[in-house]
Amino acid sequence: MGLVPESEALQMIKMTLAGLFSTLILISGCATATNEASTDPAAGDEFAAAWDAADAKRQEAAAVGYEWRDTSKMLKKAKTEAEAGNTEAAMKLVAKAHEESADAIEQEARESTLWQSRVPQ
């Protein structure tokens, strides 16, 4: 005979199992909540629109021969991050790529006349 009566031991096992079960439900709920955030259709649409705009800007820079070296890589990485559910990181990369291309286009406009000042006379 143990220290605890048999009926009480059964009771304790039941309570422990119930506790474990609710913890599992809670964890699984959290995980589902995270996945839901990353696959939120609105967030996905926002990313897709931002990505398209940044890529269009990159193409604009490339069309005048002024695309910067890493812009394309950034956009590729942004897609990978978005697919992995890292929406915030993905959006940051897209914003940086967009900004780079805008700077490159400005640089091209600036250089369209400035280059002449460097020609030895």
Partner: peptide
């Protein structure tokens, strides 16, 4: 070709001549 040589480009904003001239 000449214009390409003297134009600054890229994130570092250098022309060919920036390095190999000045």
């Amino acid at each position: 070709g000449k214009e390409f040589y003297y134009r600054k480009r890229g994130q570092l904003n250098f022309s060919c001549f920036d390095c190999h001239g000045g």
